[in-house]
Design a protein around this nucleic acid. Sequence first.
DNA 1: ACTAAGACTTTGACGCATCAAAACATATAA
DNA 2: TTATATGTTTTGATGCGTCAAAGTCTTAGT
Lengths: 233, 233
Amino acid sequence: MATKSRIKTEARPTSTVEQYIKVIFSQQERAEGEIVGMKQLADAMAVTPGTATSMVKHLSARALVDYTPRKGVLLTATGRKLAVTMIRRHRLIETFLEQVLGYDWTEVHEDAEALEHAVSERFIERIDTYLEYPQTDPHGDPIPDSSGAIERRLSVPLDRCSEGDQVTVVRIGDEDPEFLILMKEHMLTPGEVFLVTEINPTAGTLSVCHIESKALFTLGLAAGARILVAPIH
Amino acid sequence: MATKSRIKTEARPTSTVEQYIKVIFSQQERAEGEIVGMKQLADAMAVTPGTATSMVKHLSARALVDYTPRKGVLLTATGRKLAVTMIRRHRLIETFLEQVLGYDWTEVHEDAEALEHAVSERFIERIDTYLEYPQTDPHGDPIPDSSGAIERRLSVPLDRCSEGDQVTVVRIGDEDPEFLILMKEHMLTPGEVFLVTEINPTAGTLSVCHIESKALFTLGLAAGARILVAPIH
DNA sequence: ACTAAGACTTTGACGCATCAAAACATATAA
DNA sequence: TTATATGTTTTGATGCGTCAAAGTCTTAGT
């Protein structure tokens, strides 16, 4: 595809590489720095384990990951830097789609996913300026700054709170529109304040009460794990 | 690359296919519906003729072009529709980059080229709305509406004017930033009014005078062919 | 300690988009 | 009409990203 003028086009990773790196990063996050196995990675990328293995070798050759055969991968410093760049892109694009183009919070993810592999650095810097350097995206996730620094938010999954806790919603995972729509219906959006009224490990449910509207809502513990909150002291 | 959930993802053409179709369309335009040869196409796509041949067979199998071996290709109705869709995307994106993100007229093309293959239809409709349905892009090219209708502008290449003609600049081809920067320096931008002061076929030059500033500018006839103007009666 | 279950790797294949180089066709000029 | 130049097609190869299936290693369970 027409990459004309051979004046040293400084190679950007393919979008596949970018995607793997992002996924490895989030797996690593989710598991607190644990090494990421091939099955896990393959599942997250929706490919077969063999594909994951060969791709990981490739990433390893590019010095983006450390690969220990039969164990798994960890990002190198370079890989981590790329991951953070991608996350910055993704979150800025999501914010832009919501704030400027009027996308709904629940439909922003898919388009951002496609755009993040196509936009130039110039584009990203322009929207960052346009939005006046936003701190978080529509889901409440922090946006790394252009040097790659991420503001670490202290927050806990909703299912690890105790009955009687009063909490502010910090973030809600951004993958599944269905889930997001449901959460939105019950006002579970970043910034809203709730009281944890019941945790029932036997039934596998937890209930919260929206302070402002007094509305009650019960959800599964697994769903609760996808919602991060900050306790109010 | 993770095209999960096999629920009939209605296949969008690859970006390569989109690119070929766009190029065939513009070659056809430029030559008033003449059949497009493989050399011509290969040059425009910056690939070898063999690549163009095999790609064209593929396009033909997808019913996007009519291919006559050893003669060339022409777009089918389907191909034309896709081409117009791509042109709409490209021009809306260019307009958006200029109007909203503050890109300069001269730097808009490259990013638009990358984005047009990544954006969703939703994205395009949102920016169209946001921009309030612009008629032309920053280069003065008409933007097809969502049904695919293009407003035909009557205009002639600057090099086909006569001495003494007074003209308004309608459009300036958008590929080459170098060229655009030079034109901009001399106020040759859409909407500006000029007087054609001299046409010299022997020297291969033409001179124009910017009405407002009285500035004179001489350029080659080939360059003149890239500038479309509307004569003022 | 042995074995079965899972995780992991290898191998061979495929589709897309490309290239180089060889073979072929056509048009024009001599 | 023949020769040459130019454009076109074919062929065989490559890199990327993928799969299926076969083979290998590791780990737990008894």
